[in-house]
Write a protein that binds this DNA or RNA. Structure first.
Lengths: 352, 352
DNA sequence: AAATGGCACTCTTGTGCTCCGAGTGCTAAT
DNA sequence: ATTAGCACTCGGAGCACAAGAGTGCCATTT
């Protein structure tokens, strides 16, 4: 994890007891949402210390920047740094019971189309956590051409239909300088289909470019179009998309009461760019990620945590899913849920 | 308009002066968002009455249910009923200057694809009003077949690609009982293309059903599929969709400060159903509509007004667009804006 | 030396009170 | 019919005060 170093060095400043105390404090705060007082910790059955002693420890924790006091006569709440330490080293995740996993699998499994599956995964994440769920549309590295077809619309507009990866249909209108006859179009399509069916688009692009050097001039233009088209498709893959559900759940949290902040958050959701960027980090890390508060680098997300996990189809990472909620969330439950959902989604997509 | 009767009968209870007074009151409230006091009205240059006289009139207006006082020592604000009267009979709309219309046209015109056009229209509505804009995806009554194509995926899954209305591409996977050969599929596609290109889908459906009675059994199955497909396309048209922009603008209005209400509103936006239903009313009325507060029949929209206008492609209504904002909005400016945008969008879609 | 009891101190929260200003409704005068 | 005048109501701001929650620190205990 990125903050491992600083987190670990902080950790080495803490003896067993302080860690335990801190852990309980975070857990209590997560449960009740109120600043935690020394007395309240002292009452905890896991802790056999007087409030006064607890206060001494808390003072240390505060010096280390793990907790902070909203005001003199309030208890302490964890800082972003505190959450980081908690999540990286202290949280005891509560794995889902097998039964619950089965339930998830069944609920997810009832959809057949890929799109429905993604949507459902997203709304399940949101439903189970009462926060916002997000799932990216899967993107395979390889884009395999299955079929290409040209259709003349008007004299200088041609509709290109491209079937890739089993059943994704892409289409785009291309403007040409001169009119083509139907037979020219059919011929070109046939050529491309015979030559390149089953091949990867990026390979095709290269081949076509090469062959254009010796090809007769006639075809040049239409070939260029095909190239252009494949570029478009590949580009489309990049500004990929995600499905989000349960954004409005976030409105129910007290920490989101600030309308200005809430608006920034929802704007970020709509603009997609920032969310996408955060999700991207997770796909690159190839493992579960927890972003706490502004760590993600976007001010819209401060006060929020994002928990993500990439999902795989046949050993290849094709997407990410996750949950977005207030920093004060039940990490112990959400982390395994995201983990399991990613695995389930991957396996369901593979078996499709 | 639906409430014309009750509105008119209220109107007949009001003399010229009361109407004028009421109109100014609503205008002031819309401008400043504060309850309007008798003194404030009396100061207005259009009104030459003492505060005391104004108070007498206001008392009448209150008896008629047009205005209400939040508490004793506050001014008056319009009720939903009051807004209704104002919008139906009193508002002086401020038509957009020709220059502004040109600007709109140019900004809208820079997009070429239909989808981009719709999206842009929606965000322009939201941008200009600082409220939420909404535009339904256009739906033509007639669905003209341009091209159909079958593509075998696996032995019992066939991908049907349908090009309709110039450049909309629809596709769907159909499960079959037996495998078809490529030539069977090509043959069927050719047959359908030759026979039905340029025809309306619903006609095709009927023709195919008829011809199936005498056609050889072989084709039966694949024909059924084609029917099924066209049904799907038509059905898709019905559970139509809209594009919304600027929802978050609404968060900035004081009247939306209640988180619970806000959530209901956003939930309604996400569920789409209620919004769609309100928009539907407008498409049926074939003219501009103003829904005030709960008039729309959905509690999620109370405190909000929805202003809609249908838009036409070659004389036929194909969609609706509109603006959603707080009941307290500048009707005099928003109404003409929605009107003009609908006309512009219609003409741009026609000329595509 | 570590843990704790005790205590002074700080800060928030809630309550009750007063005062002021805004606006109304009514009545009597024009 | 209009208006001036006036009593009345209500919300909001300001203030003082008490109660309660927690802390920090020191002196004491273990």
């Amino acid at each position: 994890m990125e903050n491992a170093v600083s987190t670990d060095s902080t950790l080495s400043n803490l003896n067993e007891r302080s860690q335990q105390l801190f852990k309980v404090l975070v857990e209590q705060y997560i449960s009740y949402g109120q600043p935690v007082a020394s007395k309240s910790l002292s009452n905890d059955e896991q802790i056999n210390l007087s409030p006064a002693t607890v206060r001494n420890v808390m003072a240390d924790l505060e010096d280390l920047g793990l907790i902070i006091s909203p005001h003199t006569s309030a208890g302490r709440i964890p800082t972003a740094q505190g959450y980081r330490l908690f999540v990286d080293n202290l949280v005891t995740v509560k794995p889902l019971r097998g039964q619950a996993v089965d339930k998830l699998r069944i609920e997810l499994g009832i959809d057949d189309s890929q799109e429905a599956l993604i949507t459902r995964a997203s709304s399940m994440l949101s439903g189970m956590t009462k926060m916002a769920g997000v799932v990216t549309i899967p993107r395979r590295e390889a884009v395999i051409l299955r079929h290409i077809e040209f259709l003349q619309l008007t004299s200088n507009r041609i509709l290109v239909i491209l079937v890739v990866n089993e059943q994704e249909v892409q289409n785009r209108v291309i403007h040409t300088e001169r009119a083509f006859t139907d037979s020219e179009l059919t011929q070109t399509a046939n050529y491309l289909n015979q030559e390149f069916m089953g091949k990867d688009l990026s390979l095709i692009r290269q081949s076509v470019l090469d062959s254009m050097k010796q090809e007769r001039d006639d075809m040049q233009h239409i070939m260029k179009m095909a190239i252009q088209m494949t570029d478009n498709v590949v580009a489309d893959q990049n500004d990929d998309d995600f499905v989000m559900a349960g954004q409005t759940n976030l409105m129910d949290y007290a920490e989101m009461a600030n309308m200005e902040k809430l608006r920034q958050l929802f704007d970020a959701f709509n603009a997609k760019r920032d969310v996408l960027h955060v999700l991207d980090k997770s796909i690159q890390a190839e493992g579960m990620q927890v972003f706490i508060g502004e760590e993600s680098g976007y001010s819209a997300f401060d006060g929020c945590s994002v928990i993500t996990a990439p999902y795989k189809v046949s050993e290849e990472v094709v997407g990410v899913l996750g949950v977005i909620g207030p920093t004060r969330m039940a990490y112990d439950k959400v982390i395994p849920l995201v983990d399991v959902t990613a695995k389930l989604l991957g396996s369901l997509l593979s078996s499709e």
